[in-house]
Amino acid sequence: MKAAIIVFPGTNRERDMRLALTRASGREPAMLFHREAVLPQGLDLVVLPGGFSYGDYLRCGAMAAQSPIMRAVKEFAAGGGHVLGVCNGFQIMIEAGLLPGGLLRNATLRFLSMDCRLRVERAGTAFTAQWRQGDCFRAPMAHGDGNYFADEATLDRLEGEGLVAFRYVDEAGQATEAANRNGSARNIAGVFSDNLRVCGLMPHPEDLVDPLMGGEDGLPMFQSLAERLVGA
C-alpha cells in the first residue's frame, strides 16, 4: 500500500499515523506538506491526520480545506482514490466538502480527552474489512469540536444508504446518550462517502495499534487498508 500523509501547519498527529500505517502495511507512508500542489503518482491512500491545522482559525479545518494540496486531494477522491481523515482531518474533509455534515463545538463545551467505544456500523469497506458489523472497539479521542451535525434528511440518507461508519456506544455496545460525549447527531462518530472510499472519524484508531500503546484496538482499520489496497 502506497500511502501519503498530509501535513499542515499545526498538524501534530502525523507521526502516530505513520506508525500505524507502517505497522500494518510494512511500508512507510510519504509525508507531504500542504504547499504541494500535486500528489505523487500511484498513491493508494491519502490520510489527513489530527492536530490543529492553522490554529483552528475561523472554523476547525476551514483554512486547511483551502490549501493547495486539498485541491489535489479532492481530485484524487473524485477519481476513486481512498482518503482517511481522523479528528482534524475529518474536520478538514467536512470543510472541503468531501463528506457531508458539519462538526460543531462539543455539546458540553469541554475539550474531551479520553477513551471512547466505537461500534462498527458497516463492515466490508476498505476501512473496516477486518471487523464484523457490530464489533465494538476502544479508541482515544481528543477534540473540542466533534459534535457531528447534519440536517434530518441528510442523516436519514446516511443511515438509509449505510454510510454511517462508526457510532459512539457504551460498554454494552448500545448507542446511548451517555456514551455520546460530544453530543453528535445519532451518536455518529464517523461517516463514509457515497462510494465508501472516503472515511472520516473524530476518534483516533491510530493511537491504539501496539501493545506498548496500551492496546491494538485500532489496528484492524490499518490492516483492512493494507489488505485491500495492496497494489490497488
Binding site: 460543531l104 463545538r105 462539543n106 455539546a107 463545551l109 451535525f149 453530543g183
Partner: peptide
C-alpha cells in the same frame, strides 16, 4: 451565526 435549529452550546 449558528443556523436556527443548530445547537449553540456557547
Amino acid at each position: 451565526m449558528p443556523k436556527a435549529g443548530v445547537l449553540d452550546p456557547q
